[in-house]
Amino acid sequence: MTDLLPRAEASLSVEDFLEALAEHVGEQALSGVTNEYDTLTLHVEPGSWVEVARVLRDESAFGFDLFDSLFGVDNRDEGFRVVAILYSTSTGVRVLLDVNVPGGRDAPVLPSLTGLYAGANWMERETWDMFGIEFNGHPGLAPRILNVENFEGWPLRKDFFLASRVAKPWPGVKEPAETDEDGNVVERETLLGDAPGPTDLDKAMADHAKAVNVAIAEPAVEEAAESVAEDVAATEAPEALVELEPEPEPEPEPEPEPEPEPEPEPEPEPEPEPEPEPEPEPEPEPMAQAPAEPPVAAMVAPWPLGVGFEDEAVLEGELPDLPPDDDPASGEPEGRL
């Protein structure tokens, strides 16, 4: 038996709803309406923020009694938006109230809804904590609700960079999105707030992964792989990672100097000269001594241990240059803002 809540007899259609709302708050209260992806959003003028919410709560035609949530969204240069979500248990309608917070990015201020909905209290505290948006009339925005009390900065703003992404690129298997079908790395322009684009270290890792995949896909074609290796060796391409004969000293890939801050247009040839580093490990010996092993393992040298992770000092030779931890510029790549 499915219990349905008693729904209002005539649940208003969107047009009727907007008409009724306009009757109560006036035409100027809303600057627009969006109804995409099954989400009805009212774009409210900042001056009528509280009024619209009050009307939606108190008028029986609407009856939005469940306060769902309130949060901020970074709106790039225009400042911030605050979205409040209200739901009516009697009509089953949900509405999003969206407002452009006046004050831009420097001093965003909005009236508080705490007087109407008690649930807005913590929601607004969290929005202030994350974005720095002040709420007039709030009983007490401080202390910070989620972050540490002495935290500096507003974390969810797009100009607050996620430190882990700045310090090092995404380690591990290359994301498919960064490579096209052939396995070549795709450059893209990174906008404000985007995940950083591929760095040179990323490209090196991508090429290595591609080589391994190629080797796995065609294990029997040693001759073709050998010829490719010869070509590769002949051109002295910096990303020469494929090794097809078990050499006593496999050449690890060279260490390009990746910029930890992805620039919008990374230079196509910042790659330094490949510096073959003799690896002290006796790894190739087992490869040579175990002919029963699949040829794949013999064809591609493993990714050098430690590259891309913290203990890069283990390796000799040129290492990617990372900004020191206390470098104030480390959080702000150029050309982002």
Binding site: D65, L66, F67, D68, S69, T89, Y117, A118, G119
Partner: peptide, 10 residues
Amino acid sequence: REVALAYGVT
């Protein structure tokens, strides 16, 4: 009930 709805309890 009203308090619960105002807080968004579900």
